[in-house]
């Protein structure tokens, strides 16, 4: 027994369709007969890649002319369902991303249905979907389902599924018109900035080097960046130093923040609060450096170093130079 139809929210950047979208498509194909995609923006640019991942139809709003994606896409989907131009799917899957959360939130109000967030697994239980969400730092897995008749709205954590191309012709692009947004549409993007970051993205890097409160001061974060550069790694951070304003929110690994699953995760001066553990416990290998031998981070580390990051990191970076 599978679902009839799932709609996956497609996000894309300069380098094509976002990994989170491809991950959700792979899972959606497992549990539903038909998988379609909806997106805010130009569908044609993504049609070939989406077709390769088994998508037959892309419902695209076209250029949003600076309007916010969340309210535009949610309003377009709700309007299309309401006027009968599309049939409501059994479920919507969206990534736990900046825009994915906005679309899910607005859509839930428009359709008057619940949202389940932070899902890391989805499966069929009879003819319905159930989702799994980790709580308490990933020590417990909570399985939930919807009771309101749907459509279901699931917000899926990145890195939960493996993308899988299946080959297929380019997806057909269908217009998803944005209705008049009225007062809800007042916010407009005036300018876009790209943060130039050297090296790989935090949630896609093979190695992540993260710093925490144990660094002692904002300036010491340069040790993390130095080591990350040497390893071709992405720099990350614990919530404590994001809260303290040392690095931006986009660096944060954890429950509130990004989930990473690199080949190697190096936690430097991070004690390992449950908030942090849920974001990095899925890493294949974990190295932890912390002064406190009782720090909870050591309970998940494959290699734990009880030591001062200010002494270990410079030596480590130096040892790696010329390798």
């Amino acid at each position: 027994m599978t679902l009839d139809k799932i709609w996956v929210f497609c996000e894309a950047g300069d380098d094509g369709v976002a990994t989170i979208t491809l991950e959700m498509l792979a899972k959606a194909r497992e549990v539903a007969g038909t998988v379609e995609v909806f997106c805010g923006g130009d569908g044609a640019a993504c049609a070939a890649e989406l077709g390769d991942h088994g998508v037959a139809t892309v419902h695209a709003t076209g250029d949003l002319d600076g309007r916010m994606k969340g309210v535009s896409v949610a309003s377009a989907v709700a309007a299309a369902i309401s006027d009968g131009s599309v049939a409501a799917p059994d479920a919507f899957l969206l990534g736990t991303t900046y825009d994915g959360r906005d679309v899910a939130a607005r859509l839930s109000v428009k359709l008057d249905v619940s949202v389940l967030s932070n899902v890391v697994d989805l499966r069929l239980d009879g003819d319905r979907l159930v989702g799994v969400e980790p709580v308490f730092g990933g020590t417990l897995n909570v399985t939930s389902r919807f009771t309101d008749g749907g459509p279901d709205i699931w917000l899926v954590r990145p890195k939960s599924f493996e993308p899988a191309a299946v080959g297929g012709p380019p997806a057909e692009v269908v217009d998803l018109p944005v209705p008049d947004l009225g007062t809800t549409g007042g916010a407009v993007v005036r300018d876009r900035f790209t943060e130039e970051s050297e090296g790989p993205k935090l949630d896609e890097a093979a190695i992540v080097v993260s710093g925490g409160r144990g660094l002692g001061a904002a300036e010491a974060y340069s040790m993390i960046e130095g080591l990350a550069k040497q390893l071709g790694a992405a720099p990350g951070a614990s919530r404590a130093i994001v809260d303290a304003g040392w690095v931006p929110y986009s660096y944060q690994v954890g429950q509130t923040g990004k989930v990473v699953k690199p080949t190697v995760y190096i936690a430097c001066g991070i004690s390992g609060a449950t908030q942090h553990l849920v974001g990095m416990k899925g890493s294949k290998n974990i190295i932890a450096i912390n002064k406190d031998s009782e720090a909870p981070i050591f309970a998940v580390a494959d290699l734990g170093i009880v030591g001062d990051v200010h002494k270990v990191l410079p030596k480590l970076t130096e040892a790696l130079e010329g390798r």
Binding site: Y98, R192, T194
Partner: peptide, 9 residues
Amino acid sequence: QTEAGADLV
């Protein structure tokens, strides 16, 4: 905050 950097809204 955006995936790429930031938008001025």
